[in-house]
Design a protein around this nucleic acid. Structure first.
Lengths: 214, 214, 214, 214
DNA sequence: CATGAATGAGTGTTCATTCAT
DNA sequence: CATGAATGAACACTCATTCAT
């Protein structure tokens, strides 16, 4: 797959090839069903080399999770223009998120689908990344309400719950957008849908109004 | 697990005991990591009997998915009062959903966490159930907008997207509510949170207003 | 090798067949070089069955050591006539020892050659058996000196050292007798040689006389 | 291990460093469990260099056995004063043996414990050395009996058997002395114990008296 | 029906060994 | 010489599955 077999290649490069292959196999088969043989073959190397560099299936999976998590967070942060207005920043972040997950569906599957189902050590790895994103969103919401001059400012707990719901919704939408066969909605469309949705909830939050059992 | 060993028990009952055990093990270990030995032991029967009734691990897992999916859909439908107003029905449905997932965390884990990660055949099984629920919600949204006298009525696609987002958000919230250690939010609280959130989005949809890139 | 392959055989019997095979392979190849595949094949069963009954290579080896140790101790004790004179008992014990090691060279190799070289857990197992035999011999020496009216009786430490040397010499002679290609000395001859040798040392011990740097 | 990394070092020296490391690792881990990686690392050289000089694990082990065997024989021969009386020579030889094994426990372990358990080729290597020592002792015994004016001289077979037993006892005592945790008996004490023991047997041999089934 | 006996096919992992640079 | 890159072959161990009793 790309690399010509047998070529001498520096370790750093080979490691990335192995991680590429591993992410793809783990995403498609799941952690348990993925076989080191298949990963090695797809990476174009022998199995012992995979063990020499990545030490074990567990460490290999962890390395995949870490790499993909870092890439996703970097993509989101990189999409946000620091000086912009809060709503603009939220839109940019969502856009970056959906663009990245759409461009790297296997990485997203490893993070959101596979890692969370394979026991604490892996799930915690993803939970750490998720917590980082939720915190980022929480801060944006706080800024947004302040900018909008909301009085009194919503409690931190409310902003946190809203952020949690927003991230959850984004995750589900990423799955949804990625699952389509031929041509799913573009990242921008998906981001717009969610932004539309979220902004209203945010507005209600600010105005303290919501749906009530009529 | 309940059944006294050695007792003659009708097939239908035995099968349910096996499915109970299987759901529990599959939920906790995942499909691949679950062992037929452990399931048979937990069910209090011999392994060959499991094979006699359920034929294979794959069919056993499929049977678990079908049973839990049916139970969930039944719970949701059963919670909805047919004659009520659309918003009331949505609230009841959400409430039923969160109450059921909270009461049957293993079943929910099998459906939402395990089945989706183990390849097409299982994922499709769940997708079918999910499609049924999304369709149900889509219809409720359509009715709600009509009842509210919204002119022009939103296109089907918009209602569908909204339903999809709502279901996705509900799924994420069910995970979130279930993951809490000591005492997560009650089903009613969770349902209220989401209803609050969704109703606003629905309102915007009806008024054709949303957030726009300023 | 004896058992017809494929036959249903009760567990206890199969376990002995497996231990027979394992003792043979471990004796010839050593612990590390022995392969479970080879053992299973020689036992006429599949590898999983070996694991089902004996759990792991380590436990299998331990089981071999225990069985052979117990057999050896039983052989020695069984050869000794309880009421006889001390020297007679010593002769009988030696005779039993050499007869058993000659009749079961693989078992002896497992105990004396292989088990002691494969790390503490195994070596300790053998050390326990050896301690039992040394203690038995020590008691016999004490009785022998008493019967001979030796005054003053030798200290326990001296009897213990003599027993240790005697056992060591016996072990070496067992190796020697067993190593011969065609026709080594008979157990009786070997026992006589050592008895001859030991009795003199014992005599010196009793008389307090020994060789001294002239 | 001593050598500063990177220094150009003549082949003969490097080989000795490798053998030092190999003896240590083989003694502690056994032949199969020892890894070439660990040996190379302990020797402070790269693995290919080990292969360049020693060709294979098997040859490396053989080289260890030969070096340690030669050292032991040299130590024994060097301890014996050629012109001395036979009993004196025996005492010196034993003393040299116990002193050497105590000073080089790893070398002794390789010879007596590891080499004998790893199949014919290695065991034969040790057997050759052992035969040399047994022959040396046999000659000393013959001389001793002649010096003592024993008539008739014992048959060669008897002297040979006595030598064999003496060597076996010495080997066992070397293990025993080496196995002690804190402070085992000194080489001289050990040699004295065995000499004491042996001299008596020798005396009996000369006088044709022994223990007989009463 | 229930069960103990049994296995084919595969898994993750290791290691001695080679070769281009 | 020294080293990082690379692998063929094997090994311990597991599991879903079957069948005779």
């Amino acid at each position: 797959m790309g690399a010509v077999k047998g070529k001498r290649v520096p370790r750093a490069v080979r490691e990335q090839q192995m991680l590429d292959a591993a992410v793809r196999i783990f995403a498609r088969r799941g952690y348990r069903a993925a076989s080191m043989d298949e990963i090695a073959e797809l990476a174009g190397v022998s199995k012992p080399l995979v063990y020499l560099y990545l030490h074990s299936k567990e460490e290999l999976f962890t390395a995949c999770i870490r790499r993909e998590a870092a890439a996703l967070v970097t993509a989101i942060r990189g999409a946000i223009e620091p000086g912009a207005a809060a709503d603009r920043q939220m839109w940019e972040g969502l856009n970056g998120f959906f663009a990245h997950t759409a461009a790297h569906p296997d990485g997203w599957a490893v993070l959101h689908v596979q890692a969370r189902t394979q026991g604490e050590p892996f799930a915690l790895e993803v939970a750490a990344m998720r917590a980082e994103i939720v915190e980022l969103v929480t801060r944006q919401i706080a800024v947004a309400t302040r900018e909008a001059g909301c009085v009194p400012e919503p409690a931190g707990q409310e902003a946190s719950a809203l952020a949690e719901a927003l991230v959850g919704a984004a995750e589900s939408l990423a799955d949804w957008a990625g699952a389509e066969g031929a041509e799913g909605p573009s990242a921008k469309e998906t981001a717009a849908t969610l932004m539309n949705f979220a902004w209203a909830g945010l507005g209600n939050l600010m105005r303290g109004r919501g749906w009530a059992l009529g």
